[in-house]
Design a protein around this nucleic acid. Sequence first.
DNA 1: GGTAGAATGAAAACCATTATCATATCCACC
DNA 2: GGTGGATATGATAATGGTTTTCATTCTACC
Lengths: 130, 130
Amino acid sequence: MTHNDRLTKGAKKVLEILGRSEELTSAQDIHSRLRTDDERAPGLTTVYRSLESLVGQGLVQAVDLGDGERRYEVVKPGEHHHHLICDKCNSSVHLDQCLVHDLEDAIKSKYGFSTRAHILEIFGTCSDCQ
Amino acid sequence: MTHNDRLTKGAKKVLEILGRSEELTSAQDIHSRLRTDDERAPGLTTVYRSLESLVGQGLVQAVDLGDGERRYEVVKPGEHHHHLICDKCNSSVHLDQCLVHDLEDAIKSKYGFSTRAHILEIFGTCSDCQ
DNA sequence: GGTAGAATGAAAACCATTATCATATCCACC
DNA sequence: GGTGGATATGATAATGGTTTTCATTCTACC
Ligand SMILES: [Mn+2]
Ligand SMILES: [Mn+2]
Ligand SMILES: [Zn+2]
Ligand SMILES: [Zn+2]
């Protein structure tokens, strides 16, 4: 069983939409884009389930911007990254390096705390919008 | 008009509850604790409004743990900090230093991005729960 | 005391996400 | 091929924290 065989029909379509997306995309966005192209595209429930599966497989990451609507994007399998998100134009810079990862050892030795996951997103004004 | 005069009656009670709290506390928690002590304590709406005001004044910070329920805690006026949150016992280590603040200049010069705010919380297992 | 503006609260609205449950589809096996 | 059990799907309802609404109560000020 190859890796791709794990993907259901719906999950493949969700992944395809995400692959074409420039920006962080919400479940509802994915759903409406799918339905625009095809009247009988996967329903919203399937979109949510697909995202859960894709995130679980490490192909997609969920991004929490603290506004109550989770966003998603394709990532290199098993990796993750964080963003600089512009308040004005909503564009996002995808950081190539995780600021937290570098500190996990220091956190472990200073506090005895083993890191498992983290949330990190930075908001402000991008260079174009200055 | 002193600083404290800005606080409404409801906001003072909310701040008092938060001042006594050891852990991060949700709006609903604050409300039910208030109502436990006093049958006619501020309603939930007032609690939310008070929190908004207190956060705006920099006396309280909101903490987003990504679980859909915002938490609040008293901070040194105008300051903020981040946490190491234990998955097992829900306790939190309050970090004394903001990991992002140190990097704002580097972000500005590398990406031309002006930081305004950020979300940062770290999850894992605390030393007691190892 | 009278009045304008602020504060309050009960209830309804919001809205992304999850749970339900019935139906459709897949697939290993004979 | 056919078939039965497992899996996937989708329409709908439920969930739950937060926000809005709007009518009422308080407060500051003259
Ligand atoms: Mn990204
Ligand atoms: Mn804290
Ligand atoms: Zn990271
Ligand atoms: Zn910070």
